[in-house]
Computed example of a mutant assay.
Amino acid sequence: MKEFSERDRWVTEDQYHRALGDLLWERANTVVWLDLPRRTVMWRVIRRSIARSITRRLLWNGNRESFRDWLDADHPIRWAWTQFDRKRRETTERATRHPTVTVIHLHTARQARRWLASERTDG
């Protein structure tokens, strides 16, 4: 990941923070934070899980989701609910620790679409 982050341009998700610490924040000049409301996040996770459970669509590593999986402590619906506040707090703390990083803090899907559209016309 160090080699990856030394490139001139890169895009990644923050899911690697546990393994990398603040490495990506230390090397980034801009972070786009899609900070959707809990109700939006939960609606999307639940809708996706319902579809996956009904269709039994093949996921990664040969996995398929079933309604029975919803009882698992690490199911995406439970994970999204229990980790929501922690992830928001941790991202806020990282932004505070790295004041030289420009944080584009988007709160809605509409804001994200507008920002992406503006980047396409500016870039």
Rank of each mutant, 00 (worst) to 15 (best):
R27L: 13
R27A: 08
R27E: 11
A28M: 11
A28P: 08
A28Q: 08
N29W: 10
T30M: 11
V31M: 04
V31A: 07
V31K: 07
V32Y: 09
V32M: 13
V32T: 13
V32S: 13
V32D: 13
W33H: 12
L34I: 14
L34A: 09
L34S: 11
L34R: 04
D35R: 14
D35S: 12
D35F: 10
L36P: 02
L36R: 11
P37M: 11
P37A: 14
R38N: 08
R39L: 14
R39T: 10
R39M: 08
T40L: 13
T40P: 02
T40V: 13
T40K: 09
V41C: 10
V41S: 03
V41H: 04
M42Q: 12
M42S: 07
M42D: 03
W43A: 07
W43Q: 11
W43V: 00
W43G: 05
R44F: 02
R44V: 00
R44Y: 01
V45E: 01
V45L: 03
V45D: 00
V45G: 01
V45F: 01
V45P: 03
I46T: 02
I46V: 15
I46D: 00
I46R: 00
R47Y: 04
R47G: 05
R48Y: 05
R48C: 05
R48F: 04
R48G: 12
S49P: 06
S49G: 05
I50H: 02
I50E: 02
I50Q: 02
A51F: 08
R52V: 00
R52D: 00
R52E: 03
S53P: 00
S53L: 03
S53F: 00
I54W: 05
I54A: 04
I54Q: 02
I54L: 14
T55N: 06
T55L: 05
R56N: 04
R56Y: 01
R57M: 06
R57G: 10
L58N: 15
L59I: 05
L59W: 06
W60V: 12
N61Y: 06
G62L: 09
G62W: 03
G62F: 06
G62K: 09
N63T: 10
N63E: 14
N63V: 06
R64P: 07
R64N: 10
R64L: 08
E65W: 11
E65N: 14
S66W: 03
S66Q: 11
F67P: 01
R68E: 08
R68P: 02
R68L: 07
D69V: 01
D69Q: 03
D69C: 03
L71N: 08
L71R: 14
L71I: 11
A73C: 11
A73R: 12
D74N: 15
D74E: 15
D74C: 10
D74I: 04
D74T: 08
H75I: 01
H75T: 04
P76C: 04
P76K: 09
P76Q: 10
P76G: 07
I77A: 10
I77S: 11
